[in-house]
Design a binder for these strands. Structure first.
Length: 832
DNA sequence: AGCACGCCGACT
DNA sequence: GTCGGCGTGCTC
């Protein structure tokens, strides 16, 4: 029997019949649990409502997924304790998205909820101890620790569990609290606290009596000269400000009058002014208008029209535009159309590309229509954004992956910019979803369109256009008709020296930098490794220091004078003595950004040099500050990791150097060619943007690597054709979804055994591809990846489901073996 | 995720 | 003999 319960008020059930709700709570439970809806709440609870429920002895806020009258037989459901808002918190589309993500990425809906809701909408249960007044103050029966807590309780009357933990500074507070309860010193409350706080602003009003001019004049005239002169001064300032501004806030007034809050309080105590606390918006309000002050080039107009045409027919369109072709401008025009049609637009970017640069640009065009949303926002702001999107007030959201979970009212378009970026895929924790793919599903729920944009599309998206699933629009002309930079390959094989190892600055690169500096242009040097040297090797026996947890070679960081594991982040003191042979003869191998910076300083003492990588950027502001300096040409040479590439647009760069291309061509990951090509294209794209011809120098020892040929000619199609062919040798067919199983255990042997058993099974049944570690140095210990090829046909969801079931069953068989019981097996779906 | 229950090793 | 470690199982 099917119920249609999407809106309240609820159907009127037989009063004798129970009504139940399946509730999602933010935990990784095997399935959703059911609570009974008490009669007094029946009229108001509906799908998507936020409710307070009790599980075990904790309280949680959950979301009602379904409402039904099937009385559970296996257990007696408890009542829902409370309805937290009159209106459902989320729309049915969100529920469907959660369900899809949970199913597709193999996690619980609770885990999706965890990721989806701003933390303030997930109430936290905090145990609170209250003092029992009847106990009195005789603490002689208590032991030392109990005494400490009792004393604090006597003073404060109430203590949170976390506070008790601080007082005792011990891990086991429970026995002590138990003792206190038994001795009737205190009682425990489980309290659910709504953590969202409205921002309050104090407004200053003149008391009604003084709205009368006469009374006011009288007050001012009779103000005795020697009493509270500062208050009089403040009052006069107030009268002045109110005339020009209409309404006055406390902070504003005090600043303008240069007065203190005590003086204002004096006026309030005399009943001259009245202070009113009012909740206000945390988000700055900009005027709601669209100001677009540019014209599209002919090529852009053509592309924009094609996109519209494609989107009329298909729900997804891939816009492939070379770097600097002005994709963003096309987005802006498109967004404008959707706003005018009253629709909402979600503009997704990889987190790292959400820089002040792009934000400022969009705010300039869309003012108050646009809102930014990402995980770094503080929780109060996030709740406010949430609400504004839910009411449809905010039309455009610029956000990272997580903005996908916002409750859009009338979503019309999702733009996924830098579609190829691997950071759209969440790795840890669950849900391990791909922002782009989930966006395509989410959009379908609203009948909305999706525009994927990239200069270097991912193979799977490109493949989908070839298969006719997505539309494809090409934008091959750079804005202002600037040529793509010329690419020069420098063979460093011949100039590798025995003692010094790999060369950092070849004569060709040095000369090119010199020339750029002379022309007052800027240079970007790209190196995919941070730190000073990626590994040190014992000159006598060849031993290499590795991380204790990860089997990863330790990178030397000269600035900190420490060895660091780049996988888990652990820092180690410098190793001077070989653990294998006892000699003190380490040789530093290869180089990272730190060493490049050092080499640059030495080679170009006159130039201003900066380094941009994870280590040199502490806060988000450092990043912006450094970019600004570079924009203003206060830096000549910028050396950095991938950070220098993402979403940035520098006008005066005419030379880009890829210092060690071997480092990006040598991955053993099966996506190596695609990644290397994308990376090199993106880096190259930074050269010669709006200026004359730019130049790219690639230093490499394997000059015959096929990817280099494609990069040299910027030949995307050839690259993709090559890659598709290449992958057919590994996978059949290419570009399907695979399920990846990650086995984790303290003991790497046990993890590996379990992984092998699973891999064996998958191989037998699905002819699976079982990969080695993703990178030889990394992952060998904790993660064993097992890839299983899923789809005979990309659309065969049935097959996927079957495979998932088989895998889950096999996982439970493996875990029923005592030896592997505590192996954590994470199942994840990814595109290959 | 918590949290209780229960089974084995190091202590008064 | 007990205290306390963590491995195991359950929560509507």
């Amino acid at each position: 029997m099917a119920y249609n319960l999407t809106s309240s008020p609820l159907f009127s059930p037989d009063p004798n019949e129970g009504v139940y709700a399946e509730v999602i709570i933010p935990l990784a439970l095997p399935r959703n649990y059911t609570w009974a809806i008490p009669t007094h709440l029946r009229a108001n609870i509906s799908k998507g409502s936020r409710v307070e429920v009790q599980l075990k002895n904790k309280k949680y806020s959950g979301i009602v997924k379904t409402i039904h009258t099937d009385k559970p037989t296996a257990f007696e459901p408890r009542d829902i304790l409370n309805l937290l808002e009159e209106q459902p918190l989320i729309y049915p589309q969100q529920l469907k998205l959660w369900e899809w993500i949970g199913d597709y990425y193999m996690c619980s809906e609770g885990e999706v909820m965890q990721a989806a809701l701003p933390s303030h909408l997930k109430l936290s249960s905090e145990s609170i101890l209250t003092y029992n007044e009847e106990f009195g103050e005789n603490f002689s029966d208590l032991n030392d620790e109990e005494y400490l807590v009792a004393e604090a309780l006597l003073l404060k009357k109430e203590l949170k569990l976390s506070e008790v933990q601080q007082i005792l500074d011990a891990a086991h507070v429970y026995p002590i609290i138990k003792g206190l309860i038994e001795k009737k010193v205190c009682m425990v409350w489980e309290a659910l606290k709504d953590t969202y706080k409205q921002k309050l602003e104090t407004y200053v009003h003149l008391e009604a009596a003084y709205h009368n001019e006469e009374n006011l004049a009288k007050l001012l005239n009779e103000w005795s000269k020697n009493k509270a002169p500062k208050q009089l001064e403040l009052l006069l300032s107030y009268l002045h400000v109110i005339r020009t501004e209409g309404e006055v806030t406390q902070t504003n007034l005090l600043k303008k009058a240069n007065a203190s809050s005590a003086q204002l309080k004096g006026l309030a105590d005399k009943n001259i002014v009245r202070l009113e606390k009012r909740s206000v918006d945390r988000l700055p309000t900009l005027p709601r208008d669209i100001k677009i002050d540019f014209e599209l080039s002919a090529a852009q107009v053509e592309a924009a029209e094609s996109v519209e045409r494609v989107l009329n027919e298909k729900s997804v369109c891939l816009l492939q535009g070379v770097t600097s072709s002005g994709k963003t401008q096309i987005y802006i025009k498109l967004i404008e159309q959707y706003i005018k049609a009253g629709k909402q637009v979600l503009y997704m970017l990889p987190e790292i590309a959400l820089t002040a640069q792009i934000i400022r640009r969009l705010q300039k065009y869309f003012g108050g229509y646009i809102t930014i949303y990402h995980s770094k926002f503080n929780p109060n702001e996030r709740v406010e954004i949430w609400n504004k999107i839910k009411t449809g007030e905010t039309k455009v959201v610029l956000g990272a992956r997580s903005s996908l979970f916002l409750p859009f009212k009338e979503l019309g378009l999702i733009i996924v910019d830098e579609e190829h970026d691997p950071s759209f895929k969440q790795q840890e924790p669950a849900p391990r979803y791909h922002g782009r793919d989930a966006a395509i599903y989410y959009a379908s729920l609203y009948n909305a369109k999706v525009l994927l944009g990239s200069a270097t599309p991912s193979i799977e998206s490109y493949f989908n256009t070839q298969a006719g699933k997505y539309g494809l629009v090409n934008l091959t002309e750079r804005y202002g008709n600037v040529q793509m930079p010329a690419i020069q390959i420098v063979d460093v094989k011949t100039i590798i020296t025995k003692e010094k190892g790999k060369i950092i600055l070849s004569p060709q690169l040095t000369e090119a930098i010199q020339q750029s500096l002379q022309e007052k242009k800027q240079v970007i040097l790209f190196q995919n490794r941070r730190g000073y040297s990626p590994y040190q090797i014992c000159g006598v026996c060849g031993w290499i220091p590795q991380c204790e947890n990860c089997d990863v070679t330790l990178t030397y960081h000269k600035a900190k004078n420490k060895l660091q594991c780049h996988y888990c982040g652990t820092s180690y003191p410098l190793v001077l003595t070989c653990a294998a042979c006892g000699n003190h003869n380490f040789v530093q191998k290869n180089f990272g950004t730190e060493k490049i910076e050092e080499a640059l300083v030495e080679a170009f003492p006159e130039a201003k040099i900066a380094r941009m990588d994870y280590d040199s950027i502490r806060g988000k502001n450092d990043h912006d500050a450094l970019i600004k300096l570079f924009e203003q040409q206060k830096i000549d040479i910028l050396a950095g990791t991938q950070m220098v590439v993402k979403g940035l647009d520098f006008e005066h760069v005419n030379l880009v150097g890829i210092v060690d291309a071997d480092g990006i061509l040598n991955f053993t990951d099966f996506r190596v060619n695609e990644r290397a090509f994308q990376l090199m294209e993106q880096v190259s794209g930074r050269a010669g943007r709006r200026e004359a011809q730019g130049k790219v120098i690639v230093q490499v020892s394997n000059t015959h690597h096929p990817v280099l040929q494609f990069v040299q000619h910027h030949s995307y199609e050839e690259m993709y054709r090559f890659e598709i062919e290449n992958r057919k040798n590994f996978f059949y067919p290419p570009f399907s979804r695979v399920i990846q199983l990650i086995c984790k255990h303290k003991d790497k042997n046990i993890a590996e055994e379990a992984a092998n058993i699973l891999g064996q099974f998958l191989n037998d049944k699905y002819a699976a591809y079982v990969s080695g570690p993703a990178e030889p140095a990394i992952n060998r210990v904790r993660n064993q990846y097992l890839y299983e090829l899923l789809l005979k046909l990309p659309k065969d969801a049935q097959f996927l489901r079957q495979c998932k079931q088989d895998i889950l069953q096999q996982v439970s068989i493996v875990q029923s073996n005592k030896r592997y019981r505590s192996v954590t097996i994470v199942a994840d779906v990814d595109a290959v």
